[in-house]
């Protein structure tokens, strides 16, 4: 009885969370130009439009992918040494860098977006996709920083001792023990950035200065003409990417542990 109540509550929450998403997804099937629910004259024509016939969506999809992959790569490259230094040496300098790297994520994104738009206006490059990449790198670097730090902390120090007694110096340990053992954590951080960058709106809104658009921007820009079912295809695509990525993280990494569950408690 109690268990039924619990599961009932959880399922109601899940339904509440899924409802708008499901509605968006189903609206993609609308035959006409307007977003109706339930969809009228169901058709898959909108998918054709999104992925093939309307270049504006293709281009923004391309931009989304470029920004997401590039900023995720940069974020991992920047945060790896910071996390490693903090873990290995824990100096005041490394702690300061850690704090700085996590700072943008903790602020209201609109403030950071405004600041970035000033920065790129002054140094040039506002509206250049490269500054968009850097902006997302800064905004989302906190995520790989956290996952990599968790990964480093999960390394058994005796493994490093063992490697040392077998002749490994610090660079060798880094290459043969630390990097392979933190690979899944690094990848998780990478994919967290990819997914959040896909969906991020306000910062890229400020720094793109309408010179290019990602999918979220394109949707927002098209809103003035009302929602169209083609946008919903974008939502479906992104949703599927998110689910695929997080499932992969859950499958190959320890998702509960990444989110802070007690590592010792494997089963309960």
């Amino acid at each position: 009885m109690k268990a039924a109540l619990k599961h009932g509550f959880m399922l109601i929450c899940a339904a509440y969370i899924s409802l708008p998403i499901v509605i968006v997804c189903l609206s993609a099937l609308n035959g006409g130009r307007s977003m109706l629910f339930p969809p009228k004259d169901p058709t898959f024509a909108r998918f054709w439009e999104f992925f093939v016939s309307e270049p504006v969506w293709l281009r923004s999809m391309e931009n989304s992918i470029i920004v997401a992959l590039a900023s995720a790569t940069l974020a991992v490259l920047i945060t790896w040494p910071i996390a490693y230094d903090q873990w290995k040496r824990n100096t005041a300098f490394s702690r300061a860098l850690t704090g700085l790297a996590g700072l943008p994520f903790a602020l209201p994104p609109i403030v950071f977006g405004v600041g970035l738009s000033f920065l790129w206006t002054f140094v040039g490059g506002l509206g250049n996709i490269f500054t968009g990449i850097l902006s997302h790198t800064a905004l989302l670097a906190a995520l790989p920083l956290v996952t990599i730090s968790i990964g480093l902390q999960s390394i058994d120090r005796y493994h490093l001792d063992a490697a040392q007694t077998m002749g490994a110096d610090e660079p060798t340990s880094l290459r043969t023990i630390i990097l392979p053992q933190t690979l899944s954590y690094t990848l998780s951080g990478f994919f967290f950035v990819v997914v959040l960058s896909f969906h991020e709106f306000i910062v890229i809104f400020f720094v793109s200065a309408s010179a290019y658009s990602t999918v979220t921007l394109q949707i927002f820009n098209s809103l003035r003409n009302g929602f169209t079912p083609t946008m919903a295809v974008g939502a479906i695509t992104f949703l599927l990417v998110s689910i695929a990525v997080f499932s992969a993280v859950a499958r190959y990494g320890d998702l509960p542990r990444l989110l802070g569950a007690d590592p010792a408690r494997k089963d309960n």
């Binding site: 959880m10 899940a14 969370i17 899924s18 409802l19 708008p20 998403i21 509605i23 968006v24 609206s27 977003m35 629910f37 997914v195 959040l196 896909f198 969906h199 991020e200 709106f201 306000i202 979220t216 949707i219 927002f220 929602f227 946008m231 919903a232 939502a235 992104f238 949703l239 998110s242 689910i243 997080f246 499932s247 859950a250 998702l255 509960p256 989110l259 569950a261």
Partner: peptide, 26 residues
Amino acid sequence: QAAWLVFILASLSMSEVFIVMGWDIM
């Protein structure tokens, strides 16, 4: 837990734009 977390994370990462779109239709 892991399965639920995938669901939560997927909905967490949904852009504000998509969510507003869904609620707008609703």
